[in-house]
């Protein structure tokens, strides 16, 4: 009897202790991984704000102190990137808009309206998500350079537009390329959303006498506005971040139409090696639009990702 009464407070105590250890351990792990995911970013930003001598002397992740602080690198990187920011936006915004619209239409035709064989057609879209772009790269450059040199045709037109040069015409085939290859993933995203809408809505509209177009315009489009946001954020990030198509269709990093991702790997390097102050500044600036979008719309972004995995 006495044994049990004397033991029970100890038990409770050890339980509490145990519990606390666990909690502490858990949060320690959470913080450790916060470090793991943030240190490369943090180091990059800190390096961007340091003078070259401070970079050489201080710890890479330490914040700049006193004399070591400078905005010169950021300013230089910004001046190098200004044009390419414009190029990236000129390409990414229309490409994303077209992408989202076409994908929503495709998903509507493949989901809300039912006809035989649509699964097979959809499967073709789905495979398109997973195709490595290397498999179309040679034909792509062949097509836009030799078979249908749209950029060359549009060059005089672009030369006539103020603030742009003839070389910017290369953004047109690049945009079209992004639209075409972005359709599969965006269609998959929209389709998963449309499948979650009750079928009876479309059927009711049909019986109400609405045409396929009216159903899309009056019922499906208004209902999928939230999904338009999700897909837009997701796809804009993808296109803005993309490198391979720009690399293939615009080629040089010193081309007037080069988007940000094409210029970044070349910034701040010279025969003596890489100037990391400038390189990190440029990386930070290049990432800034996507980081802002991501932080502002983290939930939509995560939703897009979850849908992608089915």
């Amino acid at each position: 009897m006495s044994q049990s009464t004397s033991r029970s407070p100890i038990d409770v105590e050890s339980l509490v202790e145990n519990f606390n250890y666990r909690r502490v351990g858990k949060y320690a792990l959470v913080v450790l991984f916060l470090g793991f995911f943030l240190v490369p970013l943090e180091t990059g930003i800190m390096t961007a704000l340091k003078t070259n001598s401070a970079i050489a002397r201080s710890l890479p992740f330490a914040p700049p102190a006193g004399e070591g602080f400078t905005l010169t690198n950021l300013e230089y990187a910004f001046s190098q990137l200004t044009n390419s920011f414009v190029n990236s936006l000129l390409m990414a915004v229309p490409a994303t808009l077209l992408n989202v619209l076409l994908a929503s239409m495709a998903a509507y035709g493949l989901t809300m309206v039912s006809w035989r064989g649509q699964i097979a057609v959809f499967a073709l879209f789905l495979v398109g998500v997973f195709v490595p772009y290397q498999a179309v790269l040679v034909p792509l450059s062949q097509f836009w350079n030799n078979m249908f040199p749209l950029a060359r045709m549009l060059e005089p037109l672009f030369a006539a537009i103020p603030f742009l040069q003839g070389g910017h015409s290369r953004l047109v085939p690049l945009t079209i390329t992004h639209v075409a290859y972005g359709i599969p993933i965006c269609t998959v995203l929209f389709r998963s959303y449309y499948k979650s809408l009750p079928n009876s809505l479309v059927e009711a509209a049909k019986i109400d006498g609405a045409s396929i177009t009216k159903i899309y315009r009056r019922i499906v489009l208004p209902l999928s506005l939230p999904m338009f946001g999700v897909v837009f954020i997701y796809q804009f990030t993808q296109i803005y971040n993309e490198f391979l198509f720009s690399f293939t269709l615009i080629t040089g990093s010193n081309h007037p139409a080069a988007p940000v991702t094409l210029i970044l790997p070349a910034i701040g390097s010279s025969t003596e090696g890489i100037d990391f102050g400038i390189r990190m500044s440029a990386a930070f600036l290049a990432a800034l639009p996507t980081i802002i979008l991501y932080v502002a719309f983290a939930e939509q972004f995560a939703k897009g990702l979850r849908t992608e995995s089915g």
């Binding site: 991984f33 916060l34 971040n241 290049a286 990432a287 980081i291």
Partner: peptide, 12 residues
């Protein structure tokens, strides 16, 4: 935050 790197370009 754990997902943040995913939003960055390979280039970055």
């Amino acid at each position: 935050i754990y997902l943040l790197p995913m939003a960055l370009s390979f280039v970055v």
